[in-house]
């Protein structure tokens, strides 16, 4: 029973992490319909930037986080304006941006290696251990959950209350119609790329604090973001959140029966089954 509670808590903590990744990826994907695979290495870039500022240069962590958010937002916007926009202008078929994004992914991932070196980079922070009954967690785990809640609430308010937020929602519903009613889809696309990438910098820093940054971390990040979105149903940010938690729980509770070395594969198997059995997502009707 204690093990179950611990795995449940781990699942919820990881779920917050995946939900946040899903939120950033889903914002970009459901608004622009671009499968921005380079979201992954941008997460990596953000983590290394935070390490550079707060670890290597010794500045406060908050400055490191700010730097990571800024770099991620710039890279995200940059990839839209230089790459995807050019493809959109050419009238490329919908699959082409994804293929180009794979190219961008290996460029950025290896650029991280060239700029920062390949070793794992860690950042030492005071992380105290807490117990809640039999369940153990660290303060970084708490931050993961808190950062998710804060960002999710803020994003929800932004989307519903502000003019741009509503424009984003309109474009998510129907890009053609959004254009017809006079929404500046270029501006909205830039905003979602900036915002979605900025959001991804937060889980990036959390990975840096928890396990350290490595050049391959981005791949897992974009996949988890994608899994969350698919499980939740494309076009629904609430679905992406639910999807993130679901994957976190399945992955964690799966450990009960499955040897640890396979843990990394669980999410891929979930993704595979989801796409095969229910490509429209589990909660695709929940939004209406």
């Amino acid at each position: 029973m204690d093990l179950f509670l611990q795995l449940l808590a781990n699942g919820l903590i990881n779920g917050s992490h995946y939900a946040l990744l899903g939120l950033g990826f889903g914002l970009i994907f459901s608004t622009t319909r671009i499968v921005h695979f380079a979201y992954g290495p941008i997460v990596t870039f953000a983590a290394y930037t935070a390490w550079l500022i707060s670890g290597s240069m010794g500045l406060p962590l908050i400055v490191g986080i700010a730097g990571a958010v800024l770099v991620a937002a710039l890279l995200g916007t940059g990839s839209y304006l230089t790459l995807y926009r050019a493809l959109e202008r050419n009238g490329a078929p919908p699959l082409i941006p994804l293929i180009a994004s794979l190219g961008l992914t290996i460029v950025l991932e290896n650029l991280v290696g060239v700029l920062f070196g390949t070793g794992v980079r860690t950042l030492d922070v005071d992380s105290s251990v807490h117990f809640l009954g039999p369940v153990f967690f660290t303060s970084i785990h708490v931050w993961q959950v808190v950062s998710f809640v804060v960002i999710a609430v803020a994003l929800g308010a932004f989307l519903r209350r502000t003019r741009y937020g509503r424009a984003i929602l309109a474009m998510t519903d129907d890009p053609e119609m959004a254009r017809v009613i006079g929404i500046d889809t270029l501006k909205v696309s830039i905003i979602v790329f900036a915002l979605g990438s900025a959001i991804s910098a937060v889980p990036a820093v959390m990975v840096l604090l928890k396990d350290g940054a490595s050049t391959h971390m981005g791949f897992a990040a974009v996949f988890m973001g994608f899994v969350a979105v698919i499980v939740g149903g494309v076009g629904s940010l609430r679905g992406a959140i639910a999807g993130g938690y679901l994957v976190g729980l399945v992955e964690s509770l799966g450990l009960w029966q499955i040897p640890t070395e396979w843990q990394g594969s669980i999410s891929f198997v979930v993704l595979f089954l989801m796409i095969m059995l229910r490509p429209q997502g589990l909660f695709s009707m929940a939004r209406k």
Partner: peptide, 24 residues
């Protein structure tokens, strides 16, 4: 050597993107 190896992959990625944009 390890930098050269990364440069190699960077070249592939750039070629892939450039072809898709300029000569699909």
């Amino acid at each position: 050597v390890d930098i050269a190896d990364k440069m190699r992959l960077i070249i592939y990625g750039c070629v892939l993107m450039a072809v898709l944009v300029f000569r699909p």
